[in-house]
Computed example of a mutant assay.
Amino acid sequence: MSSLPARAAGIRLADATRTFLGTIAAVNTRRAYASALDRMVRDFGADGDVGLLNPDRVSGWFDYVWGDKAPKTYNLRLTAVSAACAYWRDQQWLTGDPVSRLRARPSAPDNSKAMTAAEVAELLGMDAALRERVFWSMLYESAARAEEILNLDIEDLDTVNRCATVTRKGGAREVIYWQTGTARPLPRLIAGRKSGPLFLTDRKAKPSVAKTDTDNSTGRARLSYRRAATLLEEHTEGMRRGPFTLHQLRHSRLTHAAEKGASTPMLMALSGHTSVRSLVKYAKVSAEALGRWQAETDPAARRRSR
């Protein structure tokens, strides 16, 4: 890790953030923390002195940005900022506690990680950009991991047979399939392109971006996981149980397939899992499905319908 100037010279907020994120080994945690800290750098300024952060500035800013968000989002962002400030204090780049006036918000426990069918339908029916609608639909219908979908290139697609070859976790190359919700808008997203990343950023790629992650015809880069996750969160913050994550779309598809009677081999093929033990958590029946099954198998209800 490159050395930073002594505290007397002041530490740039951007440098302090980069250094802190570099200490986090877990990829998903680093991504989640970066979402909050990138916003802090943007609002306070990359060149701002991290030592000037104080409770007045930070609490006012935090409540302005996330004060009206769901408790889940508010608490996730607070955890990220609190962890960063604690690290900066340990480095003696910061004195005091800028988040001392902020408190986590209570939220009702939700043990169901899967979205309901109604929630998925609401998400896929949103007035969102074409790229997001295709991505969410493909992610749900294929039950593939978000990284697998984001790494797709045009050359990997077989649009006629509604499938594509992805690189699974662990390096295996397998075929995923999607349905009509993805197949119909997909040609408009491709827009005649013959090669390059399927899902692209809105802006042209920086010179440092690898050629394999850049589309030659548009000059735009491959959409990142962080940006895709942020967009889904922003679109689902207003939903009653939101915001939702990219992984929840995959989880929901597998849960819904299990509820509809998909066999274990079919679920393993759909998910790309090689172990039944890894699949078990996705086969947990939701409260919605349990209620539907109870109603459909109620003897008294069947007698009344005769």
Rank of each mutant, 00 (worst) to 15 (best):
T79Q: 14
W136K: 15
A257L: 15
E132M: 14
E148F: 00
Y64V: 14
G196P: 14
D156P: 13
T255H: 07
A146H: 05
V50H: 04
V27S: 14
K206Q: 12
A16M: 07
E174A: 12
T264D: 13
R162H: 00
T214G: 03
I149A: 15
W61E: 00
A164P: 05
L279G: 05
R31Y: 10
F244S: 01
K284F: 05
R241H: 06
F244A: 00
H247A: 10
R184H: 03
D202Y: 09
M138K: 12
G219P: 08
R57C: 03
E147P: 03
N75P: 05
D68W: 11
R188Y: 09
D153I: 06
S217M: 01
I11Y: 05
G242S: 08
D90G: 07
M115N: 04
W178Y: 09
D15W: 06
H235E: 11
W61R: 10
R131C: 11
T116S: 15
E233C: 04
K284M: 05
S2E: 10
K260I: 02
L186Q: 09
G238I: 01
V134F: 10
E234M: 12
R30L: 01
T180G: 06
M1P: 15
A25W: 11
Y64A: 15
L139H: 03
R188A: 13
P55H: 03
Q248V: 05
W178H: 05
L53P: 02
T167A: 07
T116Y: 03
R103C: 00
K211Q: 04
Q294R: 14
T167V: 15
G192A: 10
P98V: 05
T214I: 11
D97E: 08
T95Y: 08
L4S: 13
P109D: 00
A34F: 13
W293H: 14
D215R: 01
T236H: 02
V99R: 07
V175I: 15
K204I: 08
K260E: 13
S3M: 12
K204F: 07
K260Y: 07
S275A: 13
W88C: 06
S82A: 15
G196F: 02
V276L: 11
L231F: 01
Q179E: 14
G10Y: 01
D43T: 10
S137W: 03
S195I: 01
T182L: 09
W93R: 00
S142D: 11
L279S: 02
D63H: 13
S3R: 10
A143N: 05
P187W: 02
L124Q: 12
R304I: 07
S59N: 07
Y74W: 14
G51S: 14
A32D: 09
P71Q: 10
A118H: 07
D47A: 15
G238P: 13
R103P: 03
I24S: 04
G125V: 09
T212S: 14
E147A: 10
T264K: 10
G45E: 09
E148K: 03
R306Q: 07
S59D: 10
L231I: 13
A86T: 13
W61C: 02
A32E: 10
A34T: 08
T95W: 06
A289L: 01
S35G: 05
L37A: 09
S137F: 01
T264Y: 04
E141K: 00
V285M: 13
K194C: 08
G170C: 05
S305H: 10
K206M: 11
P207T: 06
G45H: 12
P109L: 02
G238V: 06
T79A: 07
L37W: 05
A84Q: 01
A6G: 15
Y177V: 00
L53W: 04
L290A: 15
A128H: 02
